[in-house]
Amino acid sequence: MKRRTFLKLATATTMSTLAAPYVHAQEKKFAGITLRFGGWGGLYDETIQKYVAAPLEERTGLKVQITAGTQSADLVKLVANKENPPFDVYQADSAYMVEALKADLIQEVTEAEVPNIKRILPGFREYGEYGVPYSVFTYIPIYNSELVEQPLTTYTDLTRPDLEGRVALPAATFDTWSLYLLALAEENGGSISNMEPAYSLLEQAKSNILALAQSTVAMIQMFETKEASAGVISDARGHELRTKGHPIVSVYPPQGIYGATSYMNVVKNAKHPEAAFAFLDQMLSDEGMLGLPRALRLGVTTDVKLPDEIAKDLTFNTPERIALKKKVDWQKWMADRSARIERINKILRG
């Protein structure tokens, strides 16, 4: 081979080698696009990153920027910046979906845009074409079996005299966390329209309440330090405490279990709606759907097949357990929130 030919070939080979990743990236559908996702922090976001964002980036070149926050703070940010929203995808639970719709922040998502929607199980799309449900969680009573002699069987048991000063409950400002109030009402002859039985019970058992926790971390800490010996916490966090070696028992009251669904939403005026649809579709895929059950033992919303070692730890893992799930009128629950929060504040102070 002539020297000139060799140099030409070597140059061409080097250039194509160097340019290959760039050209390859350009071929990917969302190369150069960054999707902004309002996360909830910690292991939750790490799981979304691992099972949803990373595979999607590998396949489509889409980068996902997860900003940890809370659904209430994110909602306020979206309301304040409707024309130029800070997120493309907003997460909300069943209760906050009411607020997101009321503030006209989210757009409809159909099967044409997110094909995996067809895999969602019946009953999970509580808001029609709005919101893509991806996870189920419950707030159930738990207790430390080393500290509580007589097992708890209902939400009402949290008001037992033997638990004086040892019960940790979520603050009433957290709408889904505070479904225990509805449980207390319904277990004692009340309803969502008549919460008096719950308030009356709390008034009588006020001395049982150690604190109303303002965050999941605070709640977990109270059980880890044995400050609290009973309370209400999400099924996922109860499992987390057990895996850390704490003798925590989850209670599934025969009168019913209260919980909610988590949704992902494409924000109105989102910068990259197509990328957001792809993100939601990946979330509903087998790969995306198995992430949260693996990491946090949260329930699924699609027909995905769960491995037995995961399924055995989930709340809704048998037809009997599923039958216990209570339906909540979220519109009514959210409409009464101010009055409910004020009432609880007054009870605790009084």
Partner: peptide
């Protein structure tokens, strides 16, 4: 909010609740 665990109300925490939780 965190040290008082809702048992020690101060006006700052009530304002925070009213704005960030109740959206009023």
């Amino acid at each position: 909010r965190l040290i008082g665990g809702n048992r020690v109300p101060m006006l700052g925490s009530l304002i925070y609740e009213r704005i960030m939780s109740e959206f009023n």
